[in-house]
Design a binder for these strands. Structure first.
Lengths: 215, 215
DNA sequence: AGCCGGTTTCAATCATCCTTGACTTTTTCA
DNA sequence: TGAAAAAGTCAAGGATGATTGAAACCGGCT
């Protein structure tokens, strides 16, 4: 008989040494959360069922319900997971020095990539569902607010020279957000076109105008 | 006496002559469609059920299922209804001469109002659901494409002087669309802020810049 | 060391509720 | 009277959460 608790999944040798290998069932939790996110992306919020999540995670439904007693618990954990992942990915993308020194372009491209990522799609599905689901809204709202705030602060660090022109910076920030998110929504059902690239280039030019104005 | 031919499709009020009580049937259909739209707005696509629609329409479920054999038939009719209503409302809003002669502002305010209207919310709910529902996508896509095309042409009529600068007009068109729809999505869960108004004013200014450039 | 009782992890089944669409019956009105 | 509209009933399928049961792991004890 194998000494591993589950033969279907390899154990992380680093975690075996650290006392409770049972604690590594945290990896099972992650597996469930990622399965839930996949379901959100592929099926949408409405068709994401516990059965489907369990199937996708390679677990039995009962096993999964042990980790997360109810469906909403899975969603809650997924929201936290997505929040952390999205923010981390965005910060990482912004942290690297652009090859051409063009921070504005880097920021636009970064957020545009971000919006095309499945994580954004999953978050969006939850956000749309939350419009008509109070319980879901109570879960999503704090994370959403925190994300926007932390994203704003990250951007401020990225453009330290803008700090003095608060209102103008905020305008550029909001404009970028709306344009790119609007494009992102459109991208959910359509493909990216040359027209979209033109809009991004125009946005870039206008942001630079804003930065240079009344200096 | 039944003068109707042996119709394989028992329901088509448009084809039935004026004398019949089918007019009442047509009004009942409209009632059902509007109830469905209310459900989409208040409950979202996922929670819109035939039971709920019937209740909201003040009909028994059986009666409703007589008019629309299946749920998808109601949605199909709702998509057509929304398409017609949205386009009509938008054209009407654009047709009136602005008091200050400012067509750009009129266009922006018009589309911004449009995006805040329940009809857009309902359409949006269907669009999001269609991302992961092929059958729904097949219904929605033609209507969505037609709407965008007809909206574009309406805008062209509104700004005849832009006709000569095709690419620049399209850029302004796309930019406006993305900014306002992005704001609209945000508006679904947040309230309109002063920051939003600033973005709209900025958009207006930039559209006028585009119109005046290299003239 | 080796056995034992309790706890944690996972699997399977069950009962319940909801949704849908087909079918049947009643009512309305020309 | 007879056909259309409306109302009511029903079974099949799906989704959720609870219960039951098995296997592995931990501690303590002889």
């Amino acid at each position: 008989m194998a000494t591993t608790p589950q033969d279907n999944r390899p154990l992380d040798p680093l975690l075996i040494g650290s006392g409770w290998q049972a604690q590594k069932s945290a990896s099972t939790r992650t597996q469930i959360i990622e399965a839930a996110i996949t379901c959100l992306v592929e099926l949408g919020y409405g068709r994401t069922t516990t059965t489907e999540i369990a199937k996708k995670a390679g677990l039995s439904r009962g096993a999964m319900l042990h980790h997360f007693p109810s469906k909403m618990d899975i969603i809650r954990a997924s929201v936290e997971y997505l929040h952390a992942k999205r923010l981390r990915a965005f910060r990482k993308a912004m942290a690297k020095e652009p090859t051409d020194g063009d921070h504005v372009r880097l920021g636009i491209e970064g957020y545009w990539s971000h919006v095309k990522h499945p994580w954004f799609v999953a978050f969006f599905e939850i956000a749309v569902a939350a419009r008509t689901d109070k319980e879901l809204a109570a879960i999503l709202f704090p994370a959403q607010e925190a994300f926007e705030r932390e994203w704003y602060e990250t951007s401020l660090e990225l453009f330290p020279e803008w700090k003095r022109k608060g209102e103008k910076f905020m305008l550029g920030f909001d404009l970028t957000r709306y344009v790119i998110e609007g494009m992102g929504i459109s991208f959910l059902t359509h493909k990216e076109t040359e027209r979209d690239k033109r809009v991004l280039r125009y946005l870039e030019a206008k942001l630079k105008d804003l930065a240079d104005e009344d200096r």
